[in-house]
Simulated assay, not measured.
Amino acid sequence: MSKHLRVVLFDPPRNVSVSINGSTEIVEGDSVTLICSSDSNPPALNFSWFKEDESSAVGSGQSFSALQSGRFYCEAHNQHGSQRSDAVTVTVHHAYRNLIVITAASGGGFIIIIIIIIIIILFIIVNRRSAMKESTISDSNEDIYTALQIKSMTF
């Protein structure tokens, strides 16, 4: 009769890593989902999320929605211990900066043409006003000379 011995090893989480659902560069108001995974027996059921240089957790659960810029990492926990992942960087761009990029890419040429037209119109208006002032000055000088009557002088 042979006896089988079954050995079950329990271990804390290891190979903890963060995967990213989407891009780590987002626009203000959007979010990126970070997902934490690990190898362990029994499986890690508790996950905590941290922002580097902050002592308290910013989230919990296997996934986390980052709304702000920073470096984030997760800690996976089971009853035998815990381990943290490497940090990933999330960058949030301000909406106005992206609006400029989108405008330049999609209709920037149109906007540049409008600006050039406005500059040309302003240039024409300034030149006409300048020409009108010169005309007014020369007209008034001509009036002075035509109003003079030349008398003959005898010596």
Rank of each mutant, 00 (worst) to 15 (best):
G81C: 04
S140G: 06
S140Y: 11
Q79C: 10
G22A: 05
K151P: 00
S69M: 07
R71M: 09
I112K: 14
R129M: 11
I100T: 08
S152E: 14
R84P: 01
S130C: 06
E75F: 02
V8C: 02
I117L: 15
S2R: 14
V92C: 05
A87K: 04
I100E: 12
K3P: 00
I120Y: 08
V101M: 10
S19G: 03
G29C: 06
H77L: 08
C74Y: 03
S130L: 09
D86Q: 06
T89G: 02
V92A: 05
R129L: 15
T33V: 15
G109D: 08
L9Q: 09
L67E: 04
A131S: 13
I121D: 06
L45S: 11
G108C: 02
T103A: 15
H94N: 12
S19H: 01
G59P: 04
F123T: 14
S40F: 01
R97I: 12
K133W: 05
L34W: 00
H4G: 09
P43N: 10
I119D: 05
C74G: 04
G22L: 07
N127E: 12
L9P: 01
S23Y: 10
A105M: 06
D30I: 03
V27N: 03
F50S: 03
F110W: 12
M153C: 12
G70P: 05
E52G: 03
A87Q: 01
L99Y: 13
D11I: 04
I124V: 13
R6A: 13
T24K: 06
V32C: 04
A44F: 00
D139Y: 08
I115H: 08
I119P: 01
A87D: 03
G70M: 05
Q62C: 06
S140T: 13
P13A: 03
D143F: 09
F155N: 09
V58M: 08
L45N: 09
L99P: 02
E134W: 08
K3Y: 09
V101L: 09
T89W: 04
